[in-house]
Design a binder for these strands. Structure first.
Length: 468
RNA sequence: GCGCCCGUAGCUCAGUGGACAGAGCGGCGGACUUCUAAUCCGCGGGUCGGAGGUUCGAAUCCUCCCGGGCGCACCA
């Protein structure tokens, strides 16, 4: 049973109020340690003035031994002032739990896979990819905290048009020529040309190093071409048809916006979408209860495709979850930097970490919600001054570390509340709030889904909100 | 045209139904005049893009409109 003192308090109150209720922390100190608006919510249903209901709840609350005082305020809020010894025992529970405090809320531990970054090995990891990783890895950590087991996977393409252009660019330099016009021009192409062998594994090795430095460790790396080998056995299980010489998946009948080409009309070679099919089967057959895709907003058009494939193959589409995040824009010297990998005109994650450090880099990328486009002023981010918000975070961390360093092991919890400084007392109600903060953070962003032809919203449900 | 995301203070953004809408930076006014300090204190600042609607109560939910980003490939 996870320690959640506030929940127990809410439950005790709910019993006396005769209704479920949530405790919130009021914005103002004088409104007490916690407050509830149940009376306001109940007023309509019970056809009684909210303040009257609030008065009854307050009276019942005041009878509880942890409650010092309960007031009715405003239109019908109940403000609670709690006894210091309640906080002392709450703090005791928190200390007992240690790092696990607030975690392990999952009703059933699941095996979840988070597939993230998955940038093709045609160049170093960029800051834009790093947002994918920072987001995905944070979600993964939240799942772990909740008691699930998480595997982080990287999926990359090692064949196809982009890869051909990439290899051709390296080969050209090796022959002493310039890379082709539509090839990759960055300086790293020259570095790779100086080495022997297929540049793809070399590139991947470097990318892995960058990601490790960014503190993301991938458990597995999945190659597109090996997945494609399973295509022949899987294609007959799909709902497909031929049109204009190509093989199409009838995905629009399964919640997708449109049908997708699986095999090209020319040489019958598989498209990138085709490889998604064996990959999805692979994920689900490997025993993951849940497969999470982390995709940039430029891929949101394919959001419903994955669930459509799952349906076609008879899997529960709720096992697929697609997380979308908005792009990152970088400015440097007041100018927006371009993000074209082919032209080599980009900010690499390694440079970014060199300039601002790993902590600051992760912090910047995860500090905004996924729905928010991020603008990062690289000059400001690298600046060691009070203009740079990251130093506030670091300073707070340093101060906390200092407190822990100086704190005796056998500290008396009650002293946290008793000291002469009233600010301690004001801080205390924050601590038991942590489980709720984590619950909120663990809920995956849901998004309204497009209606299908019949105006029904229920069929495609690849994304949904869920607690952990 | 259709779909998704966004539009809150000069700037970057918190705030997904409640008690007077917040923070950092910048700005303005003071203090300190300092041997590698995140210098300190104070102040001003918003029709919450617009219009309707739901509600006892809306920045928050619904509808429409305006503005910005992204997508709608036999590219990945």
């Amino acid at each position: 049973m996870p320690a959640d003192p506030v929940k127990s308090l809410a439950a005790a109150l709910a019993a006396s109020a005769g209704a479920e209720l949530e405790l919130e922390r009021p914005g103002e100190v004088e409104y007490g340690d916690y407050a509830t608006n149940v009376a306001l919510q109940l007023a309509g249903a019970r056809r009684r003035p909210p303040r009257e209901i609030a008065a009854e709840i307050a009276e019942a609350a005041a009878a509880l031994d942890m409650v010092e005082r309960a007031d009715v305020a405003g239109p019908g809020f109940v403000n609670l002032y709690l006894r210091d010894d309640w906080f002392a025992s709450a703090l005791g529970e928190i200390l007992e739990e240690g790092d696990a405090y607030g975690g392990r809320g999952a009703e059933r531990a699941e095996r979840v896979q988070v597939e993230m970054v998955s940038a093709n090995p045609t160049g170093p990891i960029l800051v834009s990819h790093a947002r994918n990783g920072a987001y995905g890895d944070s979600v993964a950590r939240l799942f772990e905290l909740a008691g699930h087991s998480v595997a982080r996977e990287y999926y990359y393409n090692d064949s196809g048009g982009q890869m051909d252009r990439f290899r051709a660019s390296v080969e050209a330099v090796r022959r002493g020529e310039e890379p082709p016009e539509d090839g990759y021009q960055g300086a790293y192409v020259r570095d790779l040309a100086a080495l022997k062998g297929d540049p793809v594994p070399l590139m991947l090795k470097e990318m892995e190093g960058t990601l490790e430095r960014f503190r993301i460790h991938f458990d597995t790396w999945r190659r597109q071409s090996e997945l494609e080998d399973r295509l022949p056995e899987l294609l007959p299980r799909l709902d497909t048809y031929e049109k204009e010489g190509a093989l199409w998946a009838r995905s629009s009948a399964y919640g997708d916006e449109e049908d997708r080409v699986l095999l090209r009309s020319g040489d019958g070679s598989p498209t990138y979408r085709a490889a998604d099919v064996p990959y999805l089967v692979d994920k689900l057959e490997r025993g993951f209860d849940r497969a999470i895709y982390v995709l940039g907003a430029d891929h949101h058009g394919t959001r419903n495709w994955y669930a459509a494939v799952a349906r076609m193959l008879g899997y529960d589409p709720d096992r697929i979850e697609v997380l979308i995040y908005q792009p990152v824009h970088l400015t440097r010297g007041g100018e927006q930097t371009k993000m074209s990998k082919r032209r080599g005109d980009v900010v690499f994650l390694d440079e970014f970490m060199d300039e601002i450090g790993v902590d600051a880099a992760r912090w910047y990328l995860v500090n905004r919600g996924p729905d928010q486009a991020i603008d990062i002023d690289v000059d400001l981010a690298a600046e060691r001054s009070q203009k740079n918000p990251v130093y506030y975070v670091q300073y707070a961390h340093a101060r906390i570390a200092g407190i822990l360093r100086n704190a005796p092991d056998n500290a008396d919890n009650s002293l946290l509340l008793a000291g002469p400084d009233p600010r301690r007392r004001r801080l205390s109600p924050l601590l038991p709030r942590a489980p709720r903060a984590r619950e909120r953070a663990g809920g995956i962003q849901a998004r309204p889904l497009p209606r299908n032809a019949s105006g029904d919203r229920t069929l495609p449900r690849p994304c949904r909100r869920r607690g952990t």
